[in-house]
């Protein structure tokens, strides 16, 4: 099975400009294998959507990409930088890759603006004023210029997540990771977050997105990867996977979420 899927990934139209390469990544927690020989490539400007049932390893894969979780074996590259190499500084990796969380995780003791400036000041070493200007720019980009002085507890869920996106964008990432950014939100609040994400797609941001929002996958994704039980079952352009998947498991999965 894994041979075959690895083949699928390689057979894909070779990218002109690969940004992220994942090679044979394995990861287990105790005796439970969460990722089994996962390999894939994401080109610059691509939007790759990861789907699959819960526990299929999508979130773990994202965390491996910016080394919030260490892989057991296999390698991950961002351009020429081997992310997984022990001598690579994880903080450098995380500075080049932005991440947005399912549970948002805004720093609760800081205002929206300070949430954005913290990384700029402490990681990028910007001075306060420069960081403030940059933060206001990013907040404006997600439509929250007027909420810069609000604390997280004073914002709605959708606004919080938009601040989370601004916080990640401020670091000028080459790649953005989204870990189910809307699944903790009410449907009507999801829309404002999805709108910001679609805007990023238009701007040409490279993104790896774990989501169940099939509207986003249809509209913005350049590729869809279906993971199940830690391995890539099938990967291809959205139309193919939605309308005409090669595997039964894929078909059944899309069938099941359509009924949600």
């Amino acid at each position: 099975m894994s041979r075959e899927t690895a083949g699928t990934a390689d057979d894909r139209e070779p990218g002109t400009d690969p940004l992220l390469r994942i090679e044979d990544v394995r990861k287990s927690y105790g005796s439970e294998e969460v990722l089994r020989d996962v390999s894939m490539t994401v080109d610059r400007g691509d939007v790759e959507v990861l789907v699959g049932p819960s526990g299929s390893g999508k979130s773990t894969l994202l965390q491996c990409i910016n080394r919030l979780t260490e892989v057991d074996s296999g390698r991950i590259f961002l351009e020429d930088l081997e992310i997984t190499a022990p001598e690579t500084d994880p903080n450098e990796v995380r500075g080049r890759i932005g991440m947005v969380f399912q549970d948002i995780n805004l720093f609760t003791h800081l205002t929206a603006r300070k949430n954005v400036t913290l990384g700029l000041e402490k990681v990028r070493g910007m001075d306060r004023e420069e960081a403030r200007l940059r933060a206001d720019e990013e907040l404006d980009r997600v439509g929250l210029a007027d909420q810069a002085d609000s604390y997280p507890a004073q914002l709605s869920g959708g606004q919080k997540q938009r601040v989370g996106i601004a916080r990640a964008l401020a670091m000028d990432p080459e790649l953005m990771l989204f870990d189910e950014p809307t699944s903790a939100l009410d449907p009507e609040l999801s829309n404002e977050v999805l709108a910001v994400m679609e805007q990023l797609v238009e701007e040409g941001m490279t993104m790896v997105v774990v989501t169940h929002e099939m509207r986003f996958a249809r509209g913005g994704a350049t590729g869809i990867t279906f993971l199940d039980e830690g391995e890539i079952v099938e990967r291809g352009p959205p139309e193919t996977l939605f309308e005409n998947p090669d595997h039964e498991r894929t078909a059944r999965f899309f069938e099941s979420i359509r009924h949600d």
Binding site: M99, D103, L106, V123
Partner: peptide, 25 residues
């Protein structure tokens, strides 16, 4: 726990995350 994870995701080291994010709270 997510607070420290988020701090590390923006590139802060573990000790910076503890200092600027976890301890003030």
């Amino acid at each position: 726990e997510g607070q420290l994870t988020a701090a590390r995701a923006v590139g802060l080291s573990k000790s910076e995350g503890i200092r600027y994010v976890v301890l003030p709270q």
